[in-house]
Every structure is written in C-alpha cells, then in structure tokens.
Computed example of a mutant assay.
Amino acid sequence: MQRITVTLDDTLMEELDKVMAQRGYQNRSEAIRDLARAGLKTMKVSDQPDQPCVGALVYVYDHDSRELSKRLTRHSHAHHHLTLSTLHVHLDHDSCLEVALLKGKGGEIQEFATDVTSERSVRHGQLVLVPETGQERSTEHHHQK
C-alpha cells in the first residue's frame, strides 16, 4: 500500500466527514479508497462503452402526460434486449415510478437511460451502472458451505 498526501478544501472535507459518520468509516483513508474505487468504476464504464454492465434505471413520471406512456413503451421495446425486469409502482394520483433492471453494453444502457429520462414529463431519473467483472460473467454459481 502506498501513502499519499491530498489537499482538500474545507467544504469538501466537511462533506467527506459527514459521509464517514453516516456510513461508519473508521478513518478517512477507508472512505477515500471506497470513493476512489466507485469513481474509477464509473469512469471505466464511461470510457469503455462496450464494457458489459448491469444497471438499474429508476425514474418518476407523470402518467397523465400526453402520449408519455406510449413513448416510454416504445423506448423499452426498442431496447428490449437490455431489459431483465421492470417494476411499475403508482406513487399517487399523478405519478408513477418505474425501475428497469438492465444488462448489456454500458454505452447502450446509458443511451437507453438518456432516452427515457430526457422525455418531457419524466420528473426524475437516475441510472446506477455497475461494470461486470470476469467472475460475475461466469455461468457457474457456487455457494460456500
């Protein structure tokens, strides 16, 4: 392990300390290592659009918006090869939440997410994208005894 020195402004340090307290980190090094790993995974997916990934796209939309449901369905059908599963929840009289679990090339998943979340009357959208590793792609599944 290597030791480095990093300079952070006070505001960023306060945010880091809050994250440490919320997540129970023992020290700043642990927190910074986890944040660095997460950032590197995100960059890897962005820099390598062919990287196999799994993802969850969560979005909230106004179900009464003219033709929106049809447009969202068209996006889903156009990217059906990415979709593992979807969940649809009625939040209230006007709002629906959908979660789409996706698997495929990172660039294609990001493109699908952008198409969906940029639709008019989609109020919120967030994609969590995780690159697959060689171990995760294995077709064998083992449990420890």
Score class of each variant (00 low, 15 high):
residue 72 L to M: 09
residue 72 L to F: 00
residue 72 L to P: 02
residue 72 L to I: 11
residue 73 T to F: 10
residue 73 T to A: 11
residue 74 R to M: 10
residue 74 R to S: 14
residue 74 R to N: 14
residue 74 R to W: 11
residue 75 H to E: 09
residue 75 H to C: 05
residue 76 S to K: 03
residue 77 H to G: 01
residue 77 H to V: 04
residue 77 H to S: 04
residue 77 H to K: 07
residue 77 H to L: 08
residue 77 H to T: 01
residue 78 A to S: 12
residue 78 A to W: 00
residue 78 A to T: 08
residue 78 A to R: 12
residue 78 A to Q: 11
residue 79 H to R: 04
residue 79 H to Y: 10
residue 80 H to T: 11
residue 80 H to D: 10
residue 80 H to K: 14
residue 80 H to E: 13
residue 80 H to L: 08
residue 81 H to A: 11
residue 81 H to F: 03
residue 81 H to Y: 11
residue 82 L to R: 10
residue 82 L to C: 06
residue 82 L to E: 10
residue 82 L to Y: 09
residue 82 L to W: 05
residue 82 L to G: 07
residue 83 T to A: 10
residue 83 T to E: 13
residue 83 T to R: 08
residue 84 L to C: 06
residue 84 L to N: 11
residue 84 L to M: 14
residue 85 S to G: 12
residue 86 T to D: 11
residue 86 T to C: 06
residue 87 L to T: 15
residue 87 L to V: 15
residue 88 H to A: 10
residue 88 H to I: 03
residue 88 H to M: 03
residue 89 V to G: 07
residue 89 V to P: 03
residue 89 V to C: 00
residue 89 V to S: 06
residue 90 H to K: 11
residue 90 H to S: 02
residue 90 H to W: 10
residue 91 L to F: 01
residue 91 L to T: 06
residue 91 L to D: 01
residue 91 L to E: 03
residue 93 H to A: 14
residue 93 H to W: 10
residue 93 H to R: 15
residue 93 H to L: 09
residue 94 D to E: 13
residue 94 D to H: 13
residue 94 D to L: 08
residue 94 D to Q: 12
residue 95 S to R: 15
residue 95 S to C: 09
residue 96 C to Q: 09
residue 96 C to R: 09
residue 96 C to P: 04
residue 97 L to K: 00
residue 98 E to K: 04
residue 98 E to D: 03
residue 98 E to Q: 10
residue 98 E to L: 01
residue 98 E to A: 03
residue 99 V to N: 09
residue 99 V to Q: 12
residue 99 V to C: 07
residue 99 V to L: 15
residue 99 V to D: 05
residue 100 A to P: 01
residue 100 A to F: 13
residue 100 A to K: 02
residue 100 A to Q: 11
residue 100 A to S: 08
residue 101 L to I: 15
residue 101 L to P: 01
residue 102 L to I: 04
residue 103 K to M: 14
residue 103 K to Q: 14
residue 103 K to I: 02
residue 103 K to V: 09
residue 103 K to C: 10
residue 104 G to D: 08
residue 105 K to W: 05
residue 105 K to C: 02
residue 105 K to E: 14
residue 105 K to Q: 14
residue 106 G to Q: 01
residue 106 G to R: 00
residue 106 G to Y: 01
residue 106 G to T: 00
residue 107 G to I: 12
residue 107 G to P: 03
residue 107 G to R: 02
residue 108 E to K: 12
residue 108 E to Y: 04
residue 108 E to R: 13
residue 108 E to G: 03
residue 108 E to L: 12
residue 109 I to W: 08
residue 109 I to A: 04
residue 110 Q to V: 11
residue 110 Q to T: 12
residue 110 Q to C: 10
residue 111 E to R: 02
residue 111 E to N: 14
residue 111 E to S: 09
residue 111 E to C: 07
residue 111 E to D: 09
residue 111 E to H: 13
residue 112 F to G: 05
residue 113 A to P: 03
residue 113 A to K: 02
residue 113 A to Q: 02
residue 113 A to V: 05
residue 113 A to M: 06
residue 113 A to H: 06
